[in-house]
Simulated scan of single mutants.
Amino acid sequence: MKEGYIIRDQSKAHFITATVVDWVDVFTRQIYCDVIIDCLDYCIKNKGMVLFGYVIMSNHIHMIVQSEKDQLSDLVRDFKKFTAKNILSKIQTEPESRREWMLERFALATKTHNRNKNYQFWQYGNHAEEIYSHKFMWSKLDYIHLNPIRSGIVRKSSEYKYSSASNYSEEIDSVLPVTLISNPVVDVLQPSTILKYIK
């Protein structure tokens, strides 16, 4: 992991990226996306996760998260460990035409180290970037929400199911609640209590 991407302040919100080994397109199936959504929902309700934004793409996810318990590294580690275990289980037990190929890729990834015994699902590292201002928060939210448009999946960001864009647009029902941040372009002069999360 590069020195610049270490989570130094465990109390601050961070932009996090989790990437599947070999960029395998796992999240083209709803069953695996739902594991991510269910785990995020659990972490919000039970582990002190504050989730400001997210997107699940075909082979990686982006999130802006914070730990209410000032234990962000532990929270992200546990999230990745749980989702990896459950997705791998579903690959092995649910109908999956790519099963053998996928498991071969995940098994091969363990050969370069001794941290995983059978399979490695997530790449190591989170490319963590500390959210140091309201403006930077929104630049990362925009980046997250534009991902499905840049990939040609949808024409409007709020139409993408597995993203917090729908939460911010309020046009379409979202699959997961997030902590909303006020848009600085709209109400830059109004104080927002949510700013306590990024100070």
Rank of each mutant, 00 (worst) to 15 (best):
I131M: 05
G125K: 07
L141P: 00
F136C: 06
I87C: 11
P177D: 12
S89I: 01
I149Y: 03
I172V: 15
K117L: 02
V186S: 13
G152Q: 15
S166R: 11
H62E: 14
P184Y: 01
K117V: 01
P184I: 01
A109W: 01
P177Q: 11
L108M: 10
N59M: 15
I153A: 14
F136Q: 13
A107W: 10
I144R: 04
H127D: 14
V175H: 05
T93N: 10
R115E: 09
M57W: 11
S166D: 10
V185N: 09
D142L: 01
P184H: 06
M63D: 09
A109D: 02
S151G: 12
M102F: 02
L88H: 08
V188A: 09
V55Y: 01
M102K: 12
I181G: 03
I64S: 07
H113Q: 09
V186G: 09
E104P: 06
S157D: 00
S139T: 10
T193C: 01
E171Y: 04
R115N: 10
M137N: 10
L189K: 07
K111A: 09
S164I: 11
V65E: 09
Y119P: 04
I131H: 01
S67A: 08
Y124W: 06
K135V: 05
K69A: 04
K90N: 07
S139R: 12
S182L: 13
I144F: 00
L189F: 04
L108I: 07
M57Q: 04
N126T: 14
F136G: 08
D74R: 10
I87H: 11
E68M: 06
G125A: 09
K81N: 08
V185M: 08
N116V: 02
D142S: 06
S139K: 12
K69R: 09
L180S: 13
Y54T: 13
D187Y: 12
R115L: 06
Q92K: 14
R98C: 02
F121S: 11
T110H: 02
V65D: 09
H127A: 15
D173G: 06
V186H: 09
I91L: 10
D78G: 01
Y143S: 13
Y160T: 05
E68A: 03
I61N: 02
T83Q: 09
V186Y: 08
Y124N: 07
T112C: 00
S133C: 03
L72R: 00
R105S: 05
I87D: 11
K161S: 05
H134L: 08
K80N: 08
V178N: 11
L189V: 08
Q190N: 14
E100F: 00
S89D: 12
W138S: 00
T110I: 07
S169V: 12
L189G: 10
P191Q: 10
L88W: 03
E130T: 13
S139M: 05
E159I: 04
H113V: 03
R98W: 00
F121A: 12
D173K: 13
H60Y: 14
S158I: 07
F79C: 02
N118I: 02
Y168T: 15
I144H: 03
R115Y: 12
R77G: 02
P148T: 15
K161G: 02
F121V: 13
T110N: 05
S97H: 05
Y160W: 04
R77E: 06
K117W: 01
L103H: 07
T193S: 02
S169Y: 03
W138T: 01
S139P: 07
V178Q: 12
H145L: 13
H127W: 07
D78R: 08
I131N: 04
